[in-house]
Design a protein around this nucleic acid. Structure first.
Lengths: 292, 292
DNA sequence: AGTTACTATCAGGAATAGTGATATGTATAG
DNA sequence: CTATACATATCACTATTCCTGATAGTAACT
């Protein structure tokens, strides 16, 4: 079992190429380093530095072992950073309940930044339908939720409106509707519409039911597959539709101009009276900008 | 900078749930552990164990920090195992030059086993054409090579025949030849054949040139693409052909039965007089079974 | 050759870790 | 409830390790 102090001397000496410089940096005397390294070398029974020259240079063995020594120190730093994170009362785990449709690119960006800022806090993303999001927050299964606005208020949750998510009507490029120039809403009635419905069979209230003939699916990826095969048309969230329009497999339905995009409003929710640690506070503020 | 000894005490005490048991396991007295853990706790300014009960149990902070402490110790073990690997004179790096066609599934299996057996030895796989393999071995760019038999001998390399790699003639399932029941070789002449040729333009000598009209490609994946599109037919190594036959995109050419599979012979080569350390020796022996 | 900056070595002192004895606390069984 | 077995905390003492400061030797540079 090598001592971390000795490993630090090893790594620092290798980096600065001098025992004296290392001593200065570590706030010790030169002989301490010299002895420390010598000690490490006898412990390992390996020569780490070649002292024949003015500045000690790594031997082959030294080069090979250096990267492993650095890895040990990195882990040790990691441990210490978690200790400090606890001092700052950063949470060990944040559960995030997210409406399926809201996994926009910026969402991952925010989590990316978060993981750099709070390496000691784990994130659990649970994607589900909006009604389940509300349940999870009320039962304290999750600390933060993202969902479509739900107009039944509750005393237990705190809501924050953060913007709207545009939906486009789309169909496959070989679907009959794809040829039309202008489509009035009543022309749609004859074509099958695909809609989202959760596991419990609850329909989504935040998108209009237009056609007479409806098929249901429980995720946007299944909706996409049905639409792609020309089964019917559907509303898809802008960010999902865009990437699929660019593949050329989908066509945006040319609704008549007086028909605006549907843009259901989105809310960020937390349980009321929850104590927000630094990590949760940061994430809460960051998520407010999700749709900007 | 926490001491590795203290971290060991922490982890071992957590695992056995008792300071005394930990002391026995680490060959120290109980009070040493008690003091050691207490010391670590003041260093971290965290309570790691709850002593209110008979056996000390981890606090929340303790649980959270335990996994990081274990990670530090794992890295430290890793370092020590590399030290021991050097003692056993295991090589730091082995370069492996492999003919493109020989990346059979068992090849990765062998490397997988190798990486468990010799975690301190890195492998560099360089895939190329057989003639380049020979060059690399002669120039000591690689320590081990796999290639098709080359009949010009050289004093500098040591050869070991290890078996044969069968090639099938294949075409796309919509290619005219795919319909035929029996094909005699002279019927092939009229159809384009795709063949492999290295960067320097050297043709492969280990597969027959049958058709009059030849196109060249420099890798099996390009050959596959040309064949798949029905440009022509080609020989493909059995393992690559099989997985593509099973996708149903390729058809094996029904040659008349008197026409046997082409199975060029394969050799394992090393530079002559090279000192084989334990890792290279192991790999050499393992590769002998590559085609069994 | 002289100067500078480096490393190795050594002895003594400082800091740290380990020991063994003791007191105390907690489950379990009779 | 009490006896027993097993744990942990504390303490003074010892052993070990580590650091310091001084000295001497050596490679590079002027």
């Amino acid at each position: 079992m090598y001592s971390l102090d000795h490993l630090t001397m090893f790594v620092e000496s290798a980096k600065s190429g001098s025992f004296s410089a290392c001593a200065r940096k570590l706030g010790k005397v030169q002989s301490a380093i010299s002895q420390g390294i010598a000690h490490l070398e006898t412990d390992m029974n390996k020569q780490l530095f070649d002292r024949s020259t003015r500045k000690p240079s790594l031997t082959e063995d030294g080069k090979r072992l250096l990267v492993y020594a650095e890895a040990v120190l990195r882990q040790s730093q990691e441990l210490h950073s978690v200790v400090q994170a606890i001092d700052r009362m950063e949470e060990p785990l944040i559960k995030l309940a997210v409406e399926n449709a809201l996994l926009v690119p910026k969402f991952s960006q925010i989590l990316q930044t978060f993981s750099k800022r709070f390496p000691a806090t784990a994130i659990e993303v649970i994607s589900m339908t909006s009604t389940d999001v509300l349940d999870d927050i009320m039962n304290h299964q999750a600390q933060l939720g993202l969902m479509f606005t739900h107009h039944s208020f509750s005393e237990d949750v705190e809501l924050c409106y953060i913007g709207n998510l545009p939906f486009y009507p789309v169909c496959a490029h070989h679907h009959p509707l794809a040829q039309a120039q202008h489509i009035k809403v009543n022309e749609l009635i004859a074509h099958k519409q695909i809609m989202l419905r959760g596991a419990k069979g609850e329909a989504t209230h935040w998108l209009p039911k237009i056609s007479a003939d409806i098929w249901w699916a429980n995720s946007f990826s299944s909706i996409y597959k049905l639409v792609e095969q020309g089964i019917g048309w559907s509303y898809l969230p802008g960010h999902l539709a865009d990437e699929r329009l660019s593949f050329g497999r989908l066509t945006r339905l040319p609704f008549s101009i007086d028909h605006k995009d549907w843009s259901p409003s989105i809310e960020l929710i937390t349980p009321k009276n929850i104590v927000k640690g630094p990590a949760l506070s940061w994430l809460y503020e960051a998520m407010k900008e999700l749709l900007d």
